[in-house]
Amino acid sequence: METIKIGILGAGRIAAVLADTMVQMPKVQLVGVASRSLYKAQEFASRFSIKKAYGSYEELAKDPEIQLIYIATPHSEHCRNAKLCLENGKHVLCEKSFAANASQAEEMIALAKEKNLLITEAMWVRYMPMAETIRKVIASGIIGEPMTLTANLCYLVSDKPRLIEPELAGGALLDVGVYTLNFASLIFGDDITDIKSSVVKTETGVDAQNSITLTYQGGKMAILNSSLRVISDRQGIIYGTKGYMVIENINNFESIKVYDTERNVVETYERPKQISGYEYQIEASADAIEKGLTECPQMPHKITLNIMNVMDELRRQWGIRYPFEG
């Protein structure tokens, strides 16, 4: 992989973790950061020794030195921000959820293909080595045929305005529920035959917590929970005909424990050493750009769109539409 020059659009908490990760990566040069506040961009640039700070997203998008832009803005802004970057010839790594809805996601992907540029969703767990380990353990047959899975991801974050404002496409689903859906997709694929769900809404009208049951061809089922109001163990558990496996932290795979039919631990896998876990999506993006691809094989556009469509259907069931959706 040749050295890639990257800019960050947005200067919030996730952007800071990304920046801290990138400055530790030998083949990555973090060139610029943009915020709608020049002061905030300058403070961020100073913290991570970034040479350029911009007070507008347009300036970053037009910087001829930058090849790839990481979008770290609220969900409601992803489509607009991605199109700005693509129109200015920049490859895009876009924070999850990729867009506010499937229609926006299709627009973004179509424009990237038209411009022959990479766009990929920063669903970081998809790029991690542990994702492949999970697949291999299942393929080995040690737990037999996986038929049921459960996954939960809940944080105490209901006080954050970004997560409860409809104008910013807030709610548990797009922020943390998307991880549970990706976990189910990673294990069972996307051939869903039925979607059932329940929701509890915030006073602002977005989902505070939800429960989702997906049924697949062959009678497989995924039961998923996410919330902004409670803390959870973040586990993903896959139940098979000969045993089961417990994955610690579906938001950054930490370990896998495999149990037999007597509930004895028979195998354990630990996460390899990492900077933060974010480095894998950056490496994958750089590799795809080098190969002239418009998508990353670890997170194909088809999967991004499948999950966006599932989230659209869930919000339809809950009667949640964002103001900008009309």
Rank of each mutant, 00 (worst) to 15 (best):
V199C: 15
R126Y: 05
T73G: 07
L168A: 10
T193Q: 13
L314W: 01
D207A: 14
G32H: 06
R135H: 13
I134C: 07
I138M: 04
I69Y: 03
S158R: 13
I223E: 12
A61M: 09
C94Y: 00
E121I: 04
S232C: 12
D159L: 00
L93S: 01
F324G: 08
T150M: 11
Q317E: 13
V265R: 12
N251A: 15
L38T: 04
R47V: 00
L163M: 09
A34Y: 05
K160F: 05
V200S: 11
N101V: 01
E95N: 08
Y216S: 07
L38N: 01
I307G: 01
E325D: 08
I250N: 08
M130D: 14
V266Q: 09
A82C: 12
W318Y: 15
S232A: 14
K62N: 14
L60G: 00
T150N: 07
G218L: 15
E43I: 07
S285N: 05
L60K: 08
I66P: 03
A100G: 15
Y155W: 13
S35R: 01
A53H: 06
A11G: 00
A34I: 02
R263Q: 14
S46I: 00
G236Q: 09
K196H: 05
L156P: 10
L163G: 02
L30C: 13
P146G: 03
A105I: 05
A105S: 13
I142E: 14
S197P: 04
V206C: 10
G55D: 00
A288G: 05
L186R: 02
S185T: 14
K27E: 12
S226T: 11
S198D: 06
E267Q: 15
E295V: 10
M130T: 06
R229H: 06
V23N: 01
S226K: 02
R263P: 00
A102D: 07
I307C: 01
R47P: 05
